[in-house]
Structure formats: C-alpha cells, structure tokens
Design a protein around this nucleic acid. Structure first.
Lengths: 251, 251
DNA sequence: CGCTACATTTCGATG
DNA sequence: CATCGAAGTGTAGCG
C-alpha cells in the first residue's frame, strides 16, 4: 500500500517523485508544505503561501487543505490534465479541466513531506437512512403516512421534477407525498406546492399534498398550511435510531 | 512543520503516536492503512475494511478518504470528543459530537503511514466572483440591470428572507432583484416570487421582480415569465473572465 | 449535455 | 439555538 515517502525533498527530488507516481495506476499522493494556490474557473481565488497539504487521487481529483474544516481550501473534482513542472525553482502542480473550464495551480514553495499510496478499489460501503430508503419503506407501509393510502407510483416524473410518492387516499383523492430525511424547510414546501400545482390540472378532483419528514421549521409549517398542504411527522428510520446509534453514542 | 512520521508502526507504536500528537496544538494527523469505518448520527454507515486514509485536523474535524473523489467516505465536521484506544489489538479512533449527536469510529487494522504536521493559522485567502461581490458591483452600477434604476437597499431583511437588492425604477415602481452567480434554476424563481409576494402588500403600486444572473434554465425561464417576473442576463464578473481566467487556461 | 434533486451536505451570518 | 441561504457546492440519475 505504501509506495514511497520523502521528507524535505529538494524541488528536483519532489518533481521526480511526482512524475514517477502521479500517473501510476491507483496512486494517491499526499504532499504537505508551504503552498501557494491559485484557482480560476467558475470563480477565481488566490491563497497566499501558507502551510497546507494537497491530496491527489488516482481519478485525478485534487484537493488542497488548510488547518481547519472538512472542506478543502481549493479543489478540483476531476482533472483532464494534471502535470508537475519546475518553475522559478519551485515545483508547480497544474490541474485543469474543461466543462467547466477550470484550473488549479499549486506552487510548492517548500515540501516537508510527500507520500505515494496505492489505494485500490472501494471496499463495501453501506449507508442507511437515506431518503431513497425512507421512500422504499413508506411505499411498503403507506399506512404510516395515513390509513387507507394506496401508493400508485414512486419517483414519478412529471414536467417539473419527480414525485417521491404518488398515491390515492381512502376517499379516492390523489395524494402527492414529498419526503425529507431531515428537517423540512421552505424548499420542501415549495417543491410539494410545485408538484401539486402541476398535477392538479391533469386529474379530476382535489389533489392533496403531504410533506412527510421527521421535523419542519416553524416558518415552513406556516407556509405549508397557508398553501393548503399537510405535514406528517415521520420518525427517522428506526434501525438507525435503535440498532446503530444507541449502542455507540456515549457508551 | 513536520513533527513526526512513522511507517508501518505496530498498534502500540501507533497508539502512542496518536496520543502524543492528536491533542497537541495546531496538529494535523494523516493516517493511511487498512481501515474499517462506522458512522452513526443523522444517518448511519458502515465501511468494511479497505485501503483508506484519515485526516484529523487541529479543530477536531475528521475525514476518511477512499480511492476516489473530493468527498470523504466518512467525516465529522468538528468533534467534541476525540480519542484513540486499543481494542482487540487494533487502534480505534473515536470521534463524537453532540448537536447533532454523531459518532465516527475508525478501526485501524493495519497502518502503512502516519504523520503529524503543524498547520498554523490560515494564510490570506481571496475569493473572487461570489454573489456578495456581484451584489456590491450591481449596487454601484444598477444601470447594468436597467437604466434609471435606483438602489434603495441591499440585503434588506423582510419576514421571509433577505432581498438581494431593493430598488426603484425610472417610473417609481419598486423593484426586487434576486441575484445568482451561476445559472439560475427553479429555486431562484421561487425565491424571487416569494419576496415579491411578501413586499407587494406593503407598498403602493406594482412591485417588479427581476432575476439577474448569467444564465437561466429553460423551465425556470418559463416559470418566471408565467409569474410575471423578469430576467436580466448579467455577465459574470469581468475581472474573473479577463484578468484571472484568460492568461491561465490552456496557456 | 441539460435539468433535477439529494446530501451525514459544510459553512457562515443573523435574529 | 433555530433559520436561512450561498457554495467554485459534489454527486448521481434520467431524458
């Protein structure tokens, strides 16, 4: 897994190191040092020289991190061109992509540590508690939303987007259900309202709109009610709460 | 800047290393190896053992990266508790936070490389082309939006949110301008419409709503026009296009 | 490629 | 603490 490490390489040594490993298969590079970063594309940014580190993964993605936060200071999701050069005695990393046309340039003023790792394929990864899973569960048990509800469709595409759940209530009225995995806000109300507005003229009778979520912000609830729509509180996936979270938190 | 590096440490060595550096001031840790990751909180996830690396920054933020992409496989934006332990002969990193209650646990099955870096304060960082800057520029030159426009206020807070620009046109009508730094979509139209609806009853005469952006999606434009609102194409900040981007791309 | 919507979004501002 | 909105959002899915 560990291919190579260098501490305090000279620019020439660093350049050789990068050129050897950057385009090898499955290699992730980690470079820490005094870096200056420039970005231009959808926006433009300049980070003056400072202690940072760069990560370059095998897919060409690049990220420059500062001392704080999960989010990189600069990044490039994927690159069409990635190259290391020597300029004015400094190694320069150049990462470009088209569509959108963007460039990130990292000037390495000094390098404290550089390493090359071989990261192979993704291992199994399971995520629980997504909206898609919530949708699946409610499609199987629509009575959780309301007794007598019959689900007609999931992810039904209409002109203005996709309906999470399309159903009929006990009285035969059409029901559109919008799901949110977390606390619902303005946008959720707007989405639902937009969907109801689009479906209403297509079918006979009144179309109901239900926002199903574990919680809703106070202003969003007001807007929802003003628009004649409904809120149903749906607890988060039970297996997340009971099996996974409980035995781990604050043990 | 480089405090320490270890290659292929034993679990005991790794534990000592982590305990020495993890709570030191300004230290960022980087640990690569075969890792198993568990997360429970707003959602829950399990990543089976695989080649990954962890980064722990001085603010307690933790991120686990896999072989691809800018986004980590698992992460924790900040932690209230961060601890390294030995469990069944493996080092276990435990990161918790409350509000929201979340935990990430990283089991280190084997470690190929671990390093501790001292990353000090952020260096100067300038970002150009933000919506805030666009707002500033248009407040100074409202004629770019429309001749005869007078800006009354910026970031005016009304009940339902904040107006980017509040203005009056040549005929004395009130104008609400919603800005987008990129292509505007449905939400932008909705925001503008919500703002116009909130201001309309407060003032005499008709309130105009203008969406100012470099581009708009076709469905959003249709919705905008149907709502009696207007679109003004505003080119992205010129200095981003001409000064910063041009001399760098495809040179 | 365009459009849509989710995300453990993160992050900062503001009341 | 709750709410809101921007972000170089990233990322996946579908037409």
């Amino acid at each position: 897994m560990l291919r190579a490490v260098l501490t305090h390489p000279t620019p020439a040594e660093l350049l050789a190191f990068l050129r050897e490993h950057v385009h090898a298969g499955g290699v992730t590079l980690h470079l820490a040092g005094e870096l200056e970063v420039m970005y231009a594309g959808r926006a433009a940014s300049m980070a003056e020289a400072g202690d940072r580190f760069v990560i370059v993964k095998a897919d060409g993605s690049l990220q420059v991190h500062g001392p704080r936060g999960v989010k990189p200071v600069n990044w490039q999701p994927r690159t069409d061109f990635l190259q290391a050069d020597l300029e004015d005695g400094c190694v320069l990393l150049h990462a470009e992509r088209r569509s959108p046309a963007e460039v990130v340039r990292v000037r390495v003023l000094s390098c404290a540590l550089v390493s090359a790792l071989t990261l192979t394929d993704d291992a199994l990864f399971l995520l629980q508690g997504t909206e898609a899973q919530m949708q699946e569960a409610l499609a199987r048990h629509p009575e959780v939303i309301e007794p007598g509800l019959t689900v007609l469709d999931r992810e039904l595409l209409i002109g203005v987007g996709g309906l999470d759940l399309y159903a009929r209530d006990a009285q035969g009225r059409y029901v559109i259900v919008e799901l949110k995995r977390g606390k619902a806000g303005h946008e959720a109300v707007h989405q639902l309202s937009r969907y109801v507005g689009a479906v209403q003229p297509q079918v006979p009778g009144v179309v109901r709109g239900i926002l199903a979520a574990p919680d809703i912000t106070t202003p969003a609830l007001r807007a929802l009610e003003a628009a004649g729509l409904e809120f149903r509180r749906i607890e988060a996936l039970p297996q997340v709460q009971e099996e996974a979270l409980q035995p781990l938190l604050f043990q």
